[in-house]
Amino acid sequence: MNKYIDIGINLTNRQFDNDADDIIQNGIDADVVQMILTGTSVKNSQESAKIAAHYPGVLYATAGIHPHDAKSFDGQSIAQLKALLQLKEVVSVGECGLDFDRDFSPRDVQERCYKAQLELAIEVQKPLFLHERAAFNRFIAVTNEYLPQLPKAVVHCFTGSMAEAKTYLDNGFYLGFTGAISDSNRFEHLKEVLQYVPLNRILIETDAPFMLPKNVPKNQLTKYHERRNEPAFLPYVAGTIAQFKGVGLDVIARHSTENAKGFFGI
């Protein structure tokens, strides 16, 4: 039996209000044996850690401040995140990084918040869950300042170019792939990227409730929810990667699971 680990789900999102337990069970029923809840603010990270604690060995969480939420960063934020990172179920620093696509927080504030979390990851030596959108050059410049000291890092929900992928891989980063890879209209270039990325650097995620894979059968959508992504659909992400790389689904399941266990120490 293939087993999967979803490295990024937004279980505190309002789309999952009142049925989070069902979402988790749906995932388990689809052989997604472990899931990592993404923290995007101090408050959200606290909520994610609380949920994860109720499912020991199944759910884990990250603790961080997303660039969209960088405007909430204050003098207490790092101490609050550090306290969360002492918990055994909190396995990563993030989601953190830069997003110049929407600029929901001022760019200088994003950078200050990101640098503080890079320093936190170095201090606590837990891996980084990174976000970069429309900010590659500045993101690399900032990250390179800390690179020799950084723990492991994954650029989650990667949709960038081959050149960007090569830069991240050359820096020792992992790449996280979502259902975006099945969108041949917007992200056709990711087929070539995935053919290039070695199996030992691939992590898979749903980023649920977002990034619904295009190849989920309609009867599955009707069974769960017509528009919402969830961990139960992770095998469709793995299936697309297997197709692109010309290998069996079991190969992707095995490698991505081993990678996730080693990366997050779970």
Rank of each mutant, 00 (worst) to 15 (best):
K3Q: 11
N10H: 10
T12S: 08
R14T: 06
Q15A: 04
D17Y: 14
A20S: 11
Q25E: 13
I28K: 07
I28L: 15
D29K: 08
V33E: 10
L37Y: 09
T38G: 11
K43S: 12
N44E: 13
A49R: 02
H54G: 03
H54E: 15
L59K: 03
H68W: 05
D69N: 14
D69T: 01
K71D: 04
S72H: 04
F73I: 02
D74W: 14
G75C: 01
S77E: 08
I78P: 01
L84C: 00
K88P: 05
V93N: 02
L98I: 13
P106Q: 11
D108A: 13
R112D: 09
C113G: 05
C113V: 03
K115G: 01
H131Q: 09
R133A: 09
A134G: 00
N137I: 14
R138L: 10
V142H: 08
V142F: 06
T143N: 12
E145L: 14
P148V: 13
K152H: 14
H156P: 06
H156G: 07
G160K: 04
S161N: 10
E164M: 13
E164W: 06
K166G: 05
K166D: 07
T167M: 14
G172P: 03
F177R: 04
G179V: 05
A180L: 15
N185S: 07
N185P: 00
E188F: 14
H189Y: 05
H189D: 07
H189I: 04
H189M: 10
L194G: 01
Y196L: 07
P198D: 07
R201A: 10
L203Y: 02
D207E: 10
D207N: 09
A208H: 03
F210P: 00
M211K: 12
P213H: 08
K214N: 12
N215D: 07
P217R: 11
K218T: 14
L221Q: 08
K223I: 03
Y224T: 01
E226N: 14
R227E: 13
N229M: 12
F233R: 02
V237M: 10
I241L: 06
K245R: 15
K245W: 09
V247W: 12
R254D: 13
S256P: 02
N259C: 03
G262L: 07
